[in-house]
């Protein structure tokens, strides 16, 4: 192959736009968005559960869509807006779904909670937050090993009703 092509030159790094702030990271193409957030930007809200897109603990919102950050190469998230759990509260006030998780006791150990909340915020935006069967189906990408599902659903329904 022709390694002299300009586009095949090693990337000098990646610029990520996280919660409204631009960060330049000197990282290679093999770093996932999840690892960049946690290990480089110290944004440890997104959790590494399975690292294979099966548990949803790493869910963030990229370009307005919920995604598994473990299945995104950071280099491919260049300059695209990213919201993590750390960026949800505004002016010291919790997002309505964060408050609803507290009100409804929607977590036990808390490990899956940031992913549940990011996924739930996106689900409400998608207009899928009003019917219990619909919430169950479209929250299927987020596992909770403590089994707090009943209260998670109640929290999402309440937050959806208020938005």
């Amino acid at each position: 192959m022709n390694t002299q092509d300009s586009h095949t030159a090693p990337a000098p790094g990646v610029t990520l736009l996280v919660n409204g702030t631009r960060h330049h990271l000197a990282i290679g193409p093999e770093v996932t968005l999840l690892d960049a957030l946690r290990e480089r930007l110290n944004l440890t809200g997104a959790k590494k559960g399975c690292d294979l897109g099966q548990c949803g603990a790493c869910t963030v919102i990229l370009d307005g869509k919920r995604v598994n950050s473990c299945l995104v190469l950071a280099a491919r998230a260049q300059d695209r807006p990213i919201t993590t759990i750390e960026g949800l509260a505004a002016d010291g006030r919790l997002h309505p779904l964060q408050q609803a998780f507290i009100t409804h006791d929607a977590f036990q150990c808390g490990y899956c909670t940031p992913g549940q909340i990011m996924s739930g915020v996106a689900l409400i935006e998608e207009g899928r937050g009003h019917d219990e069967a619909e919430i169950r189906k479209h929250m299927s990408g987020n596992l909770c090993r403590c089994g707090a599902y009943a209260n998670i659903i109640a929290a999402i329904r309440e937050a959806a009703a208020r938005t």
């Binding site: 869910t59 869509k65 919920r66 995604v67 299945l71 998608e126 299927s140 990408g141 987020n142």
Partner: peptide, 9 residues
Amino acid sequence: SASPQVRNL
């Protein structure tokens, strides 16, 4: 198929 997060990618 899959989950909403996977389907968005």
